[in-house]
């Protein structure tokens, strides 16, 4: 039995799916022990119920105004005070922009090992085993912590959420924040879609075949209908058809959606490693010999500018009928 601390995360006011996925992982780890959630920001009161339904026995809501925007030093001070208070026997954080920045800092502060970007957690004979992709998904490794408590960051979209009945206690508190050396001056929201690429269940991705920035238009229309996110290959980013933040592959993001639709992407090995662990891959390409077809579950050999708008129309019909 372990007491597990989970740092939950919300974005633009709504709880991120990975928060609930972590709670489910935390329950496996806790093995009957207590799962404690931390939420930063008073708006957490609106989703505390959701955390409770997924097994958070206690929720610490940190209300400091200074933490309205993520700053490494502010968040690490807050987490440090909570860790010292709770004395957890395992810690989980999300493998998101915040977790990636914060978790290693906390790990170093407590001289803890940290296993990043895990996609699975199992407890076998009291040993906690984490699974994570390496070489951006070309291979996997299993890791364990040999000294200190288990600490990991969890990749969104991989561990199934699970509802767990029980009662929840909410504790609101303020922490002491001091000596901050960095200031966030401005945040410019440039991400186009509402759905974040790393958490999207459906990703529509464009390559050199989209030919221009305007060429992404039909893909965006398809993404709208499917409530998906837009991604891109390195080729499309290098040709400046889109921003690098959309890049999927070994030097970009690794995504594991339920459905990945590759449009005009030939499928270089670096790209394949970033997406080939998607549940279902659809490839649309003019070249029947494109390597992307080797990892695709379904392929259409054809011009994306003809196929994609037809697909959008088709899905509109299908989804209306369902």
């Amino acid at each position: 039995m372990k007491k597990v601390l989970v740092l939950t995360e919300a974005k633009y006011g709504s709880l991120r799916g990975v928060s609930l996925e972590m709670l489910s992982a935390a329950h496996r780890l806790a093995d009957g022990g207590e799962v404690i959630a931390v939420a930063i920001g008073n708006e957490a009161i609106y989703y505390a119920n959701e955390l409770g339904k997924h097994g958070a026995k206690k929720i610490y809501i940190v209300g400091n105004k200074e933490l309205d925007m993520y700053i490494t030093e502010g968040y690490s001070q807050a987490l440090q005070q909570i860790i010292d208070m709770v004395n957890p026997e395992a810690i989980l954080m999300p493998h998101t922009a915040i977790g990636k920045d914060l978790a290693p800092r906390i790990a170093a502060r407590y001289d803890l090992g940290l296993i990043s970007d895990v996609i699975d957690v199992q407890v076998v004979n009291d040993v906690v085993i984490f699974t994570r992709p390496i070489y951006s998904g070309k291979a996997f490794e299993k890791k364990t912590v040999v000294s200190g408590i288990p600490f990991a960051t969890v990749r969104p979209n991989n561990i199934p959420m699970k509802e767990i009945n029980g009662t929840t206690e909410i504790v609101r508190l303020n922490v002491e924040i001091k000596d901050i050396r960095t200031i966030v001056k401005e945040v410019v929201r440039t991400s186009t879609g509402v759905v974040d690429l790393s958490e999207a269940k459906i990703v529509i991705s464009g390559g050199r075949g989209v030919k221009s920035a305007e060429g992404f238009k039909p893909l965006e229309e398809l993404a709208d209908v499917l409530n998906g996110a837009i991604g891109a290959s390195r080729g499309a980013c290098d040709a400046e058809y889109c921003d690098y933040s959309l890049q999927i592959g070994q030097t970009g993001k690794v995504v594991t959606p339920d459905l990945y639709i590759a449009c005009g992407i030939s499928g270089a090995i670096q790209h394949l490693s970033g997406m080939s662990n998607a549940k279902i891959v659809v490839a649309i390409n003019k070249d029947p010999n494109a390597p992307i077809f080797q990892v695709a579950d379904y392929g259409i050999v054809g011009d994306l500018f003809e196929v994609v708008p037809l697909l959008t129309e088709e899905f509109k019909k299908v989804l209306v009928n369902s």
Partner: peptide, 21 residues
């Protein structure tokens, strides 16, 4: 000393070639 160790390295299950419509 390392606080974490790798216990196993392996490949993801290979996907069968898909269907070209």
């Amino acid at each position: 000393d390392a606080k974490t160790v790798v216990t196993e390295t392996y490949f993801p299950p290979k996907k069968d070639a898909g269907r070209i419509l």
